[in-house]
Design a protein around this nucleic acid. Sequence first.
DNA 1: TAGTGGTCTAGACCACGGG
DNA 2: CCGTGGTCTAGACCACTAG
Lengths: 249, 249
Amino acid sequence: MAIATRDLFLDLDRSSPVPLYFQLAERLRAAIEGGVLEPGARIENEVALAAQIGMSRPTVRRAIQELVDQGLLVRRRGVGTQVVRGRFAREVQLSSLHDDLVRGNREPSTRVLEYRVVAADAELAAQLGVEPGTELLSLERLRSADGVPIGHLRNHLAPEYSDIPREALERFGLYQLLRGRGASMRVAKQSIGARAASAREAELLETEVGAPLLTMSRSLYDDTGRAVEYGSHCYRPDLYSFEVTLVEK
Amino acid sequence: MAIATRDLFLDLDRSSPVPLYFQLAERLRAAIEGGVLEPGARIENEVALAAQIGMSRPTVRRAIQELVDQGLLVRRRGVGTQVVRGRFAREVQLSSLHDDLVRGNREPSTRVLEYRVVAADAELAAQLGVEPGTELLSLERLRSADGVPIGHLRNHLAPEYSDIPREALERFGLYQLLRGRGASMRVAKQSIGARAASAREAELLETEVGAPLLTMSRSLYDDTGRAVEYGSHCYRPDLYSFEVTLVEK
DNA sequence: TAGTGGTCTAGACCACGGG
DNA sequence: CCGTGGTCTAGACCACTAG
């Protein structure tokens, strides 16, 4: 039996700049995360839901699809749509470690270890999709949370961002600064691995030489498809990990 | 100036069971990966493309959206759609290590180290969304590629899959066996981290005690939202890493 | 102002799963 | 057989960007 959802959608605002499908998706999400729709519960079919709410079926469908993509709902043709059982994972966003820490109510701080302009070698040029020899701002930072070192961050920034002042990097997250300079970041391609800490990394991260580190290298592109930065980071695995949700299509 | 794409879409098959939007997306992908559409190239606008191909705009739009979601294209309202610059990352699928190795033309082999039924404790029950005490098949396997140990895999399977024979696990990937039993897996929630190898892990993986290992724990759900398995794996980081593409919405 | 992607409608037909 | 989600159409209006 499908759950009655009539009362959940009374306050949709058609004059709002927020899309209808998004408003509906957020209400469904709240119902799921708030326990109104329990794990395993079936929601009403798309046609009936559209009629009840007074929206077209494609709009309702898109709202549901958002939650399917995020792993909160599963659909079966000919059967129906249900809430996934089990725990909910916080969705991975395209955000910086700095922002992650702030969201987790931890106090981030940053020490800039290196700040200089370099010419892109072949490897960097390929990662970023720029010409070899292009001038990039090379950064090396140590990021701490509540005074404890958590990550060693190396970044190379595209030329248009190479005027970010060193002092700003001590106080703000890199993504925050990039956004403030008009970058609209869209696509990140990451590779996650592990390796042993070097002597320098061990000293910076206050751990032992050879201790396991979680590594992440990332190429970041903006909404024009141009490279914004290439980053090569390592983290203390006792203080940081990556959460990923995969949905089979 | 937008790239002419007229000739790319002459062989679309409207009678095929493969959806039109998917056929179109695959042709676009081939054009991008084959270099016909170069990094940074703009493709024609959705309305013109639809008219040329003889499809409706929503269908064309959906095809483009597929590639946007996969990080191959970027769109800007009022401007247009462009090919992302930089390297293309192979998309992460919901697949097993076994399948990954086969795809990479490597020879996987598996040693089953443990095979027994256990009762779910509170932690496992929460991860899988089942009642505590539910009987689960507990597995411990060593996966090698071309004879070199690459990962130590611990899994707990939901009751309906606990009759998978031990011998099958030596010869096939777990996902392959689950699919063969009718499981249609949909959602995986993974956490990726790192830690030091224990004495046993070091021996199994032919590395040193304390050597860095890449870890991944995963809850897997099927298309009814029910739990299929919980896995807790570790890998030799010199032989395996995770590739992730994130797209900001 | 012209051109683009973003949203939304109101239908239609089909494929699949279950009874 | 019926109910469900999956696909597709042919429009419409709007918001944003660039010149």
